[in-house]
Write a protein that binds this DNA or RNA. Structure first.
Lengths: 203, 203
DNA sequence: TTCAGAACTGCAACGTGTTTCTATTATGAC
DNA sequence: GTCATAATAGAAACACGTTGCAGTTCTGAA
């Protein structure tokens, strides 16, 4: 492992290090939440996390790595919070729409944070592939789980078609988020567009 | 109109100004084609276009505006080149796949340029809404035209469903482009994913 | 307990997008 | 042709992501 990835929770040996990592991500989220992408300035993150700038760069090799890692942690948190309950809804489409609606509402509740995380995700290049992949898997899992509903079994591989559909839905969701974040669509338009897409795909 | 938009061709009165604008966009494309997003440096563009840096910023208020405007011009050019011929294919899905395959291949033929334009498009914020909207319309027109095939009539409004489907396909195409541009998927994977999505949507 | 190596701090410096400012040149009304 | 105004050139300066480095502190093996 010599590529320049972000240091994950598991990479870190000591409690002090894990705490540093947590403080850095906390500061990142806080700054993003207050002022969006532009407000997440590396010097500011370092200061707020009580860490030297060089250390920040040792943990996260770029601003984009930092923000995508923050996104992954956010996802993880919400997953573990609601991951146990079965998804309500009688059809795959209903369940997927339910889940996306909830997720979208959550993100729209903090526009600045969403703007920061979304733009970082879309701007990420190949060097962030590892971190991106984590988020992609989280999304796919969330969606295939919703599609299957009660039939979902922990650990079982979803079908190719379900994965394909999930990826298309992810694409639509991300694009919708981007258009919302950039002020080119309202929250209602986003919700409507997503529902339309889901209904086209799951029929 | 006091918001800070890029100056469009129509905005410019004198031939000298239109020529400056053309030179700027030419330089942008040339630099992007040679070295991608990072190589499009504002000083370099100004120098290559034989224009002062301040003038460049008067025409395009940011690097993102500049690149998205370049994208719009590229689109326009290809549209006018192939816009007359009817799209081959017997079904909507076949026609859409044909068009996207051609477009994708075209973009993959100049990976650096595509990287520059795509990343600018995805990174654009609200201030670029006008320029983005132009590109979005171009895409929608291209796709609804393909869906309708021979039944397409110049000037006639496409149906709501066709527009909705086109937007979903646009989303998928853009996401696919992003994953390719950022080195997270190969050209074949992109082509496959797009075809899957189109076949799911147009059936 | 000691000590080598890793991790961290603090700070300076560089590159590039962006802003600002003054001097110069082009344009259009009269 | 003259003049007011806008547009442009040229260059300096600022902002922030990123890098590099000297000195200090922490950590874990012996």
């Amino acid at each position: 492992m010599t590529t320049t990835n972000s240091l994950t929770y598991e990479d870190l040996g000591s409690a002090a290090q894990r705490d540093r990592r947590r403080r850095i991500l906390d500061a990142t989220i806080a700054l993003a939440s207050k002022g969006g992408f532009d407000a997440v300035q590396m010097r500011a993150v370092a200061e707020q996390a009580d860490v030297a700038l060089g250390t920040l760069y040792r943990y996260f090799p770029s601003k984009i790595h930092l923000l995508v890692s923050a996104l992954a942690r956010q996802f993880e948190d919400t997953q573990t919070m609601v991951g146990r309950k079965p998804v309500p809804g009688d059809t795959p489409a209903e369940r997927v729409i339910y889940v996306l609606r909830r997720a979208t509402r959550g993100m729209q509740g903090d526009a600045n944070l969403t703007e920061a995380l979304t733009r970082a995700f879309m701007f990420a290049d190949a060097s962030v592939a590892t971190e991106i992949h984590v988020v992609g898997m989280q999304l796919t899992t969330m969606l295939t789980r919703s599609i299957k509903g009660d039939a979902y079994v922990e650990g079982e591989q979803p079908s190719d078609e379900d994965v394909a559909i999930s990826r298309v839905i992810s694409d639509v969701w991300l694009s919708a988020l981007v258009t919302w974040v950039t002020g080119r669509a309202t929250a209602e338009e986003v919700a409507e567009h997503i529902e339309t897409a889901v209904n086209l795909l799951l029929r």
